[in-house]
């Protein structure tokens, strides 16, 4: 698969758990508490805060400016999806951004408790955008995992290799 444009089109079922609970290896790509977790309302204004958080994280990890840029674009896309779709027919609910630094790997999870995703919602013009969000996230990260279920919220997991990974 061409990593520049492809992504893993697998949607795993969402687990019943607290969004702030420590990750578990059984269901998550990583285990243990996050390095940093941010809880915000799922509104457009929150994206700036998330981007600033990622800038601070990237600088603390001594990432190159281009890598921080990719990180911010990919995670912003996941957060934008959350703001646009997760609480579509209700008041904006919460959105969580978890960052896990594990040796030379950074995992970022964007989680909501919204309406989730199903086959109908994923396709057939359900999105008002161009439909490039998921391929973009996949292209800018080293791995993309989705976990969702109808009315069970959504989770987007993004892996970034800190020693270059996709760029090396």
């Amino acid at each position: 698969m061409d990593r520049r444009f492809g992504y893993v089109p697998v949607i795993e079922p969402t687990e019943d758990r607290s969004p702030l609970a420590p990750a578990t290896a059984a269901v998550d790509p990583v285990s243990g508490p996050s390095t940093a977790s941010l809880e915000l309302p799922a509104v457009a204004e929150s994206l700036t805060v998330v981007r600033q958080m990622l800038t601070g994280l990237g600088e603390a990890l001594a990432l190159e400016a281009a890598a921080i840029g990719d990180l911010k674009i990919a995670v912003s896309e996941a957060c934008a999806n959350c703001c646009l779709h997760a609480y579509r027919d209700t008041a904006a609910g919460p959105m969580w951004v978890h960052c896990f630094v594990r040796e030379s790997t950074l995992w970022i999870a964007v989680i909501d408790h919204g309406i989730g995703m199903g086959p109908t919602r994923l396709g057939e013009g359900a999105s008002p955008g161009l439909g490039l969000g998921l391929p973009l996230m996949a292209a800018l990260s080293d791995e993309l995992r989705l976990r969702a279920g109808v009315e069970r919220g959504s989770e987007v997991w993004l892996r970034f290799e800190l020693n270059g990974g996709r760029r090396a």
Partner: peptide, 10 residues
């Protein structure tokens, strides 16, 4: 906003 983290430089 609610931020939960490990204390330290990061």
């Amino acid at each position: 906003a609610r931020l939960e983290l490990d204390p330290g430089p990061v």
